[in-house]
């Protein structure tokens, strides 16, 4: 593989590790681009009048699939391309609006190998705006156990997300 691409291996991670914080300033374009990229045409993600007067929210807001994509970006920026998502679970407590600064933080909750030898990290991810937690997220992410391993090659019973 191209030499400059770095992949995090399971043995380099331990429980309690913190991932680097990531911040992003949200604009109306962020919201609308994310909605269109996920083929979500519902008006609360592009029409402020609808969002305010029908949904009762302060503005248009980030849609669910694009929020998932932001989590994926944050986590695979950390893991490198061999990092493979097994499961992602998130609870949206509030919405992300234009003008907000999203802040992503995460810590390693668990490090393990399953019965097939697949390496997994459990991650607790927090998305906040100001002092407010917007979304809490739990993730099961496969990491290579060594330089030669590649979770993407796992199939059938060898993949237990």
């Amino acid at each position: 593989m191209t030499s400059e691409i770095r992949n995090r291996t399971l043995d380099s991670v331990k429980q309690g590790d913190a991932l680097p914080k990531f911040s992003y300033d949200v604009t109306p374009t962020t919201i609308v681009l994310g909605a269109m990229a996920s083929r979500d045409w519902r008006p609360m993600h592009h029409d402020k009048d609808f969002a305010v007067n029908r949904n009762g929210t302060q503005d248009i807001f980030l849609n669910t699939p694009n929020q998932a994509a932001w989590f994926e970006k944050y986590l695979t920026d950390w893991s490198g391309p061999k990092g493979r998502l097994g499961k992602i679970k998130f609870r949206m407590k509030d919405s992300v609006f234009p003008g907000d600064t999203m802040v992503f933080k995460a810590s390693v909750a668990s490090v393990e190998k399953d019965d097939t030898g697949c390496g997994w990290v459990g991650l607790e991810v927090n998305l906040s705006v100001g002092e407010k937690t917007v979304t809490d997220c739990s993730v099961r992410l496969a990491l290579p156990v060594d330089e030669a391993d590649n979770p993407w090659q796992r199939k059938g019973d060898q993949w237990q997300p």
């Binding site: 593989m1 191209t2 691409i5 992003y24 962020t30 681009l33 994310g34 269109m36 990229a37 996920s38 694009n66 994509a69 932001w70 994926e72 970006k73 695979t76 920026d77 391309p81």
Partner: peptide
């Protein structure tokens, strides 16, 4: 478009060789 919307540079999605 999705990768662009979240600034995801994972080479799996941008580099055919990878």
């Amino acid at each position: 478009t999705t990768c662009s919307s979240v600034e995801m540079g994972n080479p799996i999605y941008w580099d055919e060789k990878v």
